[in-house]
């Protein structure tokens, strides 16, 4: 549970109004929880309970069979491998991509705030706009480029793609965060003879925790959840989880095993959901620390 103190508002409301407000908030709470409830409840019941009209019911027979099947034996594409190998493909892609884009973002943010030069705002603007382009515009040349670089269909190819289209955001976060960091401290260190990397390492990095968390959570969520790049550039042994889940759900052969689909969907959602529940509060706090305009 996130616990940020409720701020004092000047607005006063009567009893009836308050009851209505609570009612509306509760109803929307149910609306947001509904799909999660549907996924969880149906992932632990036998298929016939779903097809028999019991989608909203709690399971009569509790079974973890659909989870086991989704993880290790469901038919994905041509092979009955389950989602397991694709889960590891995603991990192998996400970890380096998040690490590299965060380090580059930190260095870029440092340069763009503490070593300013003519035209740096324009360069930053160019990097920032790159975050918002519809990626359809780069799909065709990117496919060619990955082929030329010998990275077509590989995990490293996907890492490259995610780093390239992620550094705009990581740079933005670190730039905003470092912008409010006192420049006098940097100048003082310079007078004492500290170099570019020493200043970064000793002065800025130790206080970069909150914004690093923001950058890591943001990148992790975006890259884990990406589908377009995975579907366009991944090969048989680098397909990420989202593409595999879509293949599982859309497969037109055999009986539709809804319970397995729901279990698979939860497996695909679990890593980002866990990160959100465990670290969500640090995300908001870090963003707030960076959003103070300098």
């Amino acid at each position: 549970m996130m616990s940020v103190s409720t701020q004092d508002t000047a607005i006063r409301t009567g009893r009836v109004t308050r009851a209505l407000i609570y009612l509306v908030l509760l109803l929307f709470g149910l609306f947001y929880l509904l799909p999660l409830y549907v996924m969880v409840v149906n992932s632990v019941k036998p298929l016939d309970e779903i097809t028999g009209g019991g989608m909203m019911n709690l399971p009569r027979v509790f079974t973890l069979e659909p989870w086991a099947k989704a993880w290790s034996s469901a038919q994905i594409g041509v092979d009955p491998t389950g989602l397991q190998p694709y889960f590891w493909n995603s991990i192998k892609m996400v970890v380096p991509a998040v690490a590299i884009s965060t380090v580059l973002g930190a260095l870029n943010g440092y340069v763009l705030t503490k070593w300013r030069f003519r035209g740096d705002t324009i360069l930053f603007g160019l990097m920032l706009f790159a975050c918002f382009i519809p990626f359809q515009i780069v799909l065709i040349p990117m496919a060619r480029m990955l082929g030329l670089m010998g990275l077509a269909g590989t995990t490293w190819g996907l890492v490259l793609v995610h780093v390239v289209y992620g550094i705009g955001f990581t740079t933005l976060y670190f730039r905003n965060y470092y912008a409010v960091f006192p420049t006098e401290l940097i100048r003082a260190a310079q007078i004492d003879g500290a170099g570019f990397f020493q200043i970064f390492w000793r002065i800025l990095l130790p206080s970069s925790g909150p914004i690093a968390v923001v950058s890591i959570i943001w990148q992790f969520t975006n890259i884990w959840n990406d589908f377009l790049f995975g579907a366009s550039f991944a090969g048989a042994d680098s397909q990420p989880m989202t593409v595999a889940l879509n293949n599982l759900v859309q497969s037109s052969t055999g009986v539709k095993e809804y319970n397995v689909h729901f279990a698979g969907a939860i497996l695909a959602a679990l890593p980002t959901l866990l990160v959100y529940i465990v670290a969500g509060r640090y995300f908001v706090r870090g963003l707030m620390a960076g959003s103070v305009k300098g």
Partner: peptide
């Protein structure tokens, strides 16, 4: 409006943002 359990309500309203559109679409 000084709502009790505001933190929990916010968490519930915001969690869909953490999901992949493929998961949302499937559900």
């Amino acid at each position: 409006q000084k709502i009790r359990a505001e933190g929990m309500i916010r968490t519930i309203y915001l969690y869909p943002m953490a999901l992949s559109f493929i998961v949302t679409g499937t559900a």
